[in-house]
Simulated assay, not measured.
Amino acid sequence: MASAFLVPLIPRIAANERTASTVMWTLLVTGVTWTVSASAEATGRVSEVLVKALPFK
């Protein structure tokens, strides 16, 4: 998911705004999908981190 935010640093992709946007969204959706479909143990760890990081419940 973090790689989606690094796309603007790649000159050839950043030169074309539409391509950069498409690549960013594709990487972001792929990362979220991969995280959600990961094992139950990984999902539990992510949930624990989010509960600690977010000020509301």
Rank of each mutant, 00 (worst) to 15 (best):
A40E: 14
M24H: 10
T43F: 01
R12F: 07
V23T: 11
F5E: 13
L6G: 00
S37N: 12
V36A: 09
S39D: 15
V51G: 02
K57F: 10
T19D: 09
R18E: 14
A4V: 00
A38I: 00
A40M: 04
S3P: 00
P11M: 03
M24P: 00
I10A: 13
T30P: 00
S37F: 09
A40D: 12
A2Y: 04
R12G: 00
G31Q: 02
F56I: 14
A38H: 07
S39I: 00
A14D: 13
T43V: 12
P55D: 13
V23D: 04
F5R: 09
L9R: 06
S21Y: 10
L9G: 05
V46T: 13
L6D: 15
T33P: 00
L28T: 03
S39N: 15
N16F: 04
V29F: 13
T33C: 02
N16C: 04
T19V: 14
A15T: 02
P55I: 08
P55N: 12
K52Q: 07
P11D: 08
V29T: 13
S39C: 09
N16V: 12
I13R: 04
R18S: 08
W34N: 00
T43W: 02
F56L: 14
V51R: 15
P55E: 12
V23E: 07
L50S: 04
A14C: 04
A15F: 04
E17D: 06
L28G: 01
R12A: 06
A20L: 06
A20Y: 00
S21G: 14
T43K: 12
A2Q: 13
G44W: 00
F5W: 09
K57G: 08
M24N: 09
W34V: 01
T33A: 06
R18W: 02
P8I: 09
V7L: 12
A4I: 04
V36I: 15
L9S: 11
L27T: 03
S47H: 06
W34T: 01
L54R: 12
T26G: 01
A4D: 09
